[in-house]
Design a protein around this nucleic acid. Structure first.
Ligand SMILES: [Mn+2]
Ligand SMILES: [Mn+2]
Ligand SMILES: [Zn+2]
Ligand SMILES: [Zn+2]
Lengths: 143, 143
DNA sequence: CCTGCTATTGCGAGTCATTTTCAACACCAG
DNA sequence: CTGGTGTTGAAAATGACTCGCAATAGCAGG
């Protein structure tokens, strides 16, 4: 079952409707992560008619359905992106030099959850990891 | 050397001036973490005269000097707080049940930095880790 | 196919934390 | 003291959303 089918089902199962706007948004985000503004810009540039408010609303609906997760790309909360859960659950490193976003995988949230559960009895339900610094290219430049 | 002395030195060393407003802000944040609005409310409640804009600006200056670090208390980055680097409490767990914020210490950012440096050559300069879930009390209630 | 109910949309207005503008002010080196 | 300039307060501006509401359009049922 594709991401788009999953999304349609999830929306219909909760009494929602599949609209033209939702369809184009879902198709666009099926392949990669997007933040609301960029996704909106991309769609309108491609001639699709949809409003920014609807992009925000649809991303929120899909997140509620468990099909997307929101992430922040840098520690200072610059940009909120939504990642489809079909892609591997990654976190992001943002280069302060060139702005490049480099995804990486880690089970650090899982490890932290275990530590907190064992040590303090805390039950972690969600976590956010954002790191920034300098990529290989930008480290060389400053040398 | 106290936090206040450190701050004064850092400000003067960079060509800045120690003003009445900066002094009271520095004294207040020397002991604990604050977000800008709360710090402002606390100071004005205590009869101190300072503007919210100056609170924001001073926190930013101190962060630039390396004396404070900003943190978000929950994964959805609701509240930004500044923590003095003299205290060791570095990260925060927010309870979704009662709103309690529980600080904890971990070298998990350090470990992640090492992993990224070794594996991908990335140089991490700052990172943010925020976790939320349920505290011990709130776990019991739902049982 | 119609139809009607109501979920959804578009657009403007509203939020809200944070930043900026700019004229008045106050540090502090000399 | 005093001038130069770093800082401040108040208000306006930002930016990233979120909301209100009338118009629109899915879609279940007939
Ligand atoms: Mn933001
Ligand atoms: Mn974070
Ligand atoms: Zn780079
Ligand atoms: Zn709790």
């Amino acid at each position: 079952m594709t991401f788009i089918e999953q999304a349609s089902d999830a929306i219909r199962d909760s009494g929602g409707r599949m609209t033209r706007q939702r369809r184009i948004i879902i198709e666009q985000i099926a392949g990669a992560q997007w933040d609301a503004e960029s996704l909106y810009a991309e769609l309108t540039a491609a001639g699709e008619e949809v409003s920014l408010a609807t992009v925000y609303r649809t991303l929120s609906v899909l997140e509620g359905a468990g099909l997307l997760q929101q992430r922040y790309l840098s520690p200072d909360h610059e940009r909120r992106v939504y990642v489809p859960l079909t892609t591997l659950q990654t976190h992001h490193f943002t280069c302060k030099g060139c702005g490049k976003v480099i995804p990486f995988e880690t089970d650090i949230v899982g490890r932290l959850s275990s530590e907190l559960a064992a040590g303090m009895g805390l039950q972690v339900t969600s976590g956010c990891i954002c790191v920034e610094g300098y990529c290989v290219d930008c480290q060389e430049e400053t040398t």
